[in-house]
Amino acid sequence: MCGISGWICYWKDISNCDDIIKNMADVLLHRGPDEGGFYLSKNALLGHRRLTIIDPEGWKQPMVKEHNNQKYIIVYNGELYNTPELKKELQTQGYTFSSYSDTEVLLTSYIHWKEECVKRLNGIFAFAVYNETTKELFLARDHLGVKPLFFSLKNGNFLFASEIKALLRHPLISPVVGKEGVYELIGLCPARSPFCAIFKDIIELPPAHYVIYDPKGITIKEYWELKFQSIDKNVD
């Protein structure tokens, strides 16, 4: 289990706001007690809390990889069960790897297939990839929503984190339960409607969805759905 967090802002320089992203990541210490890492740039701050399982040196995050003069950065929480298959396929396409981790395989999968990569993943995951060159953020959650992921888009700022309380560490977000949140608590609790996170200005990304956020705006798309089929068989 690990924890991810991030802040994207296109209209001002946030590179000197490292204290905010560190506060957001500190709340996720219980998810990743072994190590913390940060990526700081003019328009993007990314944080990661790590629980070390394998490849202590090669799995450090945020992980950065450059390809075709573009710079990609990933923060990731999860596990890919088809890492060897993906890695082998990507190697046939000319990609090389410097670690044994599924993090690098996931990042390379995004570099090669972009948003279509999620259709090839077999595992549990919540991850974000930021393209420093194009200023595009890609955010995705696994098919059944095993790994949590929340985000907020407020006043031209895009925030995301593994847990709500990390978002509440950002000065833009207040612990206010809006009218819809009250309805959810009364009518559905402990369940919630899709996209609802109870707190005002915070959205839970539903399972099997991804987000693309860039200077032009935001796109949210479902990439997979569970299919129900009748079985016409005799159990005798």
Rank of each mutant, 00 (worst) to 15 (best):
Y183T: 13
C17V: 00
I173H: 06
K147N: 07
P56M: 02
K87R: 15
K154G: 01
I73E: 01
I198T: 15
K154V: 03
S193R: 15
R31Q: 11
I220G: 02
N77E: 11
Y81K: 06
T133P: 07
R50Y: 06
K88D: 08
S174P: 00
A25W: 00
P171R: 01
L86I: 13
K88R: 13
L172W: 00
T52V: 12
E204I: 12
A161Y: 04
A25K: 02
F151H: 09
M1I: 11
C196P: 00
G94N: 04
Q229M: 03
C196S: 15
F228K: 09
H30Y: 15
H112I: 07
W7H: 14
G37I: 09
N131R: 06
V182P: 00
G3E: 01
S99R: 10
L29C: 05
G6S: 04
P194Q: 05
D13F: 04
I186P: 05
Y130K: 06
H170V: 06
K227Y: 00
G217D: 12
L188A: 13
K71P: 04
F160Y: 09
Y213E: 12
Y213L: 15
W224N: 05
P175N: 06
L121V: 12
K88P: 00
A166F: 07
C2V: 11
I164F: 05
